[in-house]
Write a protein that binds this DNA or RNA. Structure first.
Length: 817
DNA sequence: AGCACGCCGACT
DNA sequence: GTCGGCGTGCTC
């Protein structure tokens, strides 16, 4: 039978949290073109228009309803591959979310145009209007006149429904952009450089210049100074030049105006690129060479191999070799890093080796960049993609290897919108769908990975030597209780810590001070009546931000001005409690007024290049003391840091969570890795009230095995991962009673089916966020894939039951929380 | 997710 | 008397 004559239908994924696929009919002219993975434009509901993904194609006319027609096919070729669709399906089943939610996370939003999308006119100088089609020209003019159009306006202007190809034409020319893109626009920080005009490069020209400036001594000074700083007449940093106090910036300005000196701006990231260009390519040392061979051998038997290498053993060198090898085979490589480790340092290092064939993909990139990268991966224009967790969604054609660096990092887990996936686990599953290999790299294995190695599922290769035979720093525990007793401690710093910092500064060495992010919040407290300002919408105290002079809720972003007096008793005696990076910064500048201090935390790194600027300044030794949270621990190589201080290790140890021990060890080990590289032996000082704590003792001796042993026993005894799989259910409602009721009933239904595997309901530490009251249920499931599959089905069914009873209670399911 | 439909309270 | 609050159900 001639299949072409039969009506064609497509099951379609919509980028929404809907449990089902939807059936659309294909108009005759599109029926032959449509393919699985194609992006199609469909109307959904009365007026909404979405781009959907074709999941499957068939000839089954639905019995109960008349399907709507697909309006158009958005791209020539499918934008989603079969392998991706399989991965999406796995993610939606495993993480208990809808395919639509996976799709929404997987595609960059410019590929998800909907009727809500607003198109803007973008002034571009080099646009080629003459090459536009007639319709595109009309639309471009309309955009120019209106500057902002919705999809329906575009349809009205062009007098037809099928407008996508036209819009696309304008987007290619950059005449038209999507609204969100423009909001995300940023201006990278630039740094001014002063150079000497080409005319004065010769000795003679310079002499002539000085003659000309004879009666302008101030200007002559500037030129003289420039030549001293830069004998080879290369441009120098303007700021550096002006540091010289006798120089006036106005005479510098005059020189620039008279075109004797030149001023040129460069972006900071570009600077980092140049700074790294100098590094020579390095060959693998013997240990690295051996590890490489072992990894290659191990991959012959297994899909997943773990590379355990102490900080500074040069895992990256091994990765680069492996990447090179894959490229030679014509394969693509995905290199995953935690977001905060994805710095210019590592990016440039890879670019240096693989040039333009390296793509970078992460959340701080704007929309057009992300779509471009997505498309380039699809077209196999990139061999290597360096990415944060969302890189697992890219449309690889021929993926040979996935590298997950810092495998133990919790930030590979997405928490907030579904899909709540763990990129490391997804990377492991990718071996099935892409036929690739996955390498997990770390200095301190996660217990999950350790268990898989033990079970023989993953291969393991170890590297013990630090690069260049650098010695591991000495870790000293400072007992804050004892030091306080002996009056050796006032405020944040103990005397030994102060002395160590002073000694480092005296030697012109640098210091990193680490403060845990959790519990780093400072808050206001009335000394008279003990009042603390709370968020009106959440069950948390407001965080004090001196810099903005504001109190901010870190959960719902509610803000208010700092009160001058206590709102309960009217007293003016308000105090800041808790240690924040700001407090540390203040105290350091009091104790060491001459030290230059830099701060690396959420406030200072919000801008796209904020993080890089500070790192660059630190690397450039413009900062003596760097104070920061987690961010200071990640993938940064500084060779002049001799002291690392952990201000309060107790914050790390007192978090009520089963992963605390593991995480505390990983963190302290990682922070310590920042101290004393190359030939210098660094010092790590840890302030704690519990120096006898076994984690800290183990850290001191670099004894990961003890921690592993203890933690594994603990997990086994209390049935926590990696011996079980956890599923956490959170219920939310604006009435406290409704959540309690619903949570209790849900727990009861689940208990009837899964018995004592159900814990709770419990009230979380923060019981209300954004005016929603919260309750939680925790489920521990033994590691048996068929059992887990059935249990998940039971859970979904139970949640459905609750949903039909409590229609307004929101239920969030988090697998492997 | 968005949107329409529908049923109750406080206002021109 | 109506306007608009949100609870409820549906979208191929």
């Amino acid at each position: 039978m001639n299949t072409a004559s039969k009506p064609v239908f497509a099951e379609v994924i919509l980028p929404l949290a809907l449990p089902k696929l939807y059936t659309y009919a294909l108009p005759f002219e599109l029926a032959e073109k449509v393919q699985i993975g194609h992006r199609v434009i469909v109307q959904f509901g009365k007026k909404k228009i979405y781009s959907a993904i074709v999941h499957s194609i068939h000839h089954q006319m639905p019995a109960e309803y008349q399907p709507k027609l697909i309006e158009e096919i958005a791209d020539e070729k499918p934008v989603v591959t079969q392998a991706q669709l399989k991965l999406w399906q796995w993610m939606s089943t495993y993480y208990m979310c809808t395919l639509g939610e996976v799709m929404a996370a997987a595609l960059p939003s410019a590929l998800k145009l909907s009727s809500e999308t607003v198109f803007l006119y973008n002034e571009v100088s080099d646009a080629d209007w003459s090459s536009l089609s007639d319709d595109a020209f009309i639309l471009a003019e309309a955009l120019q006149a209106n500057s902002e159009l919705k999809l329906e306006d575009v349809q009205a202007i062009l007098g037809r429904k099928t407008v996508y190809p036209i819009v696309e034409e304008l987007m290619v020319q950059r005449i038209c952009v999507v609204k969100e893109e423009l909001q995300q626009k940023y201006s990278p920080k630039t740094v001014a450089f002063i150079g000497l005009n080409q005319r004065y490069q010769s000795e003679r020209a310079i002499n002539a210049l000085f003659e000309k400036l004879e009666n302008k001594p101030k200007q002559a000074d500037v030129v003289m100074c420039f030549l001293q700083m830069s004998p080879n007449k290369k441009p120098v940093l303007k700021a550096e030049l002006l540091k010289n106090e006798k120089l006036s910036s106005s005479s510098l300005q005059t020189l620039v105006k008279n075109e004797i000196l030149t001023e040129e701006k460069q972006t900071v990231s570009r600077l980092l690129e140049d700074a790294l260009e100098i590094d020579a390519l390095e060959l693998l040392n013997e240990e690295q060479q051996n590890s490489l061979k072992e990894i290659q051998n191990s991959f012959k038997e297994r899909d997943v191999v773990v590379l355990e290498g102490v900080t500074g053993s040069g895992k990256t060198h091994v990765y680069i070799k492996l990447i090179e090898e894959q490229i030679e085979k014509g394969n693509q490589v995905l290199y995953l890093l935690p977001e905060i480790a994805l710095t210019a340092q590592i990016v440039m290092r890879l670019k240096k080796y693989f040039g333009e064939r390296v793509g970078i993909y992460h959340s701080k990139f704007n929309e057009q960049e992300r779509v471009e990268i997505y498309r380039n991966v699809l077209l196999k224009k990139y061999d290597v993609v360096l990415s944060a967790r969302s890189g697992v969604f890219l449309p690889f054609r021929q993926l040979g290897l996935v590298i997950v660096d810092e495998e133990h990092e919790r930030s590979f887990k997405q928490f907030d919108p579904a899909p709540r996936y763990h990129a490391r686990d997804v990377a492991v599953i990718m071996t099935h769908f892409y036929g690739c290999k996955t390498l997990l790299g770390t200095a301190t294995l996660s217990l999950e990975t350790y268990r898989n190695v033990e079970a023989g599922k993953y291969g393991k290769v170890q590297m013990h030597k630090r690069f260049g035979n650098a010695v591991l720093p000495e870790i000293e525990l400072l007992d804050t209780v004892d030091l306080k007793k002996r009056k050796q401690m006032s405020g944040i710093f103990s005397n030994p810590m102060k002395e160590a910092i002073a000694a480092a500064l005296a030697q012109k060495e640098q210091v990193i001070l680490f403060l845990n992010r959790r519990g780093f919040a400072s808050y206001l407290n009335c000394n008279v009546c003990d009042w603390v300002p709370y968020c009106p919408h959440c069950d948390v105290s407001l965080t004090y931000h001196k810099f903005f002079n504001k109190l901010i809720c870190h959960y719902c972003n509610y803000q208010e001005m700092n009160p001058k007096s206590c709102k309960a008793c009217g007293s003016n005696d308000l105090n800041v409690k808790g240690i924040g990076t700001e407090q540390v910064e203040d105290e350091i500048s009091i104790i060491f007024p001459e030290a230059k201090v830099g701060r690396l935390d959420l406030d200072t790194t919000r801008r796209k290049h904020g993080h890089e600027e500070i790192i660059f300044d630190f690397q450039d030794k413009k900062i003596d003391v760097l104070i920061g949270t987690q961010m200071v621990t990640k993938g940064l190589d500084f060779d002049n840091v001799s002291v690392v201080g952990i201000i309060n290790a107790d914050q790390l140890l007192n978090i009520p969570d089963f992963r605390t021990g593991e995480r505390a060890f990983q963190l302290v080990a990682q922070v310590s890795g920042r101290a004393g590289r190359k030939d210098k032996k660094g010092r790590v000082l840890v302030q704690t009230a519990n120096p006898e704590n076994y984690i800290l003792q183990a850290v001191k001796e670099y004894d990961f095995n003890t921690v592993l042993f203890h933690e594994m026993n603990h997990r086994k005894m209390y049935l926590y991962p990696p011996f079980t799989n956890l599923i956490q259910i959170t219920l939310k409602h604006k009435q406290a009673e409704a959540v309690s009721d619903a949570a209790l009933q849900l727990a009861n239904i689940l208990r009837a089916r899964l018995c004592n595997r159900i814990l709770g309901p419990t009230t979380p530490m923060i019981s209300r966020i954004n005016n929603q009251f919260l309750k939680q249920i925790l489920i521990k499931l033994e590691k048996d894939s068929t059992f887990i599959k059935n249990a998940k089905a039971e859970i979904l069914q139970a949640v459905d039951e609750i949903h039909s009873k409590f229609k307004t209670v929101r239920v969030v399911i988090d697998v492997d929380p």
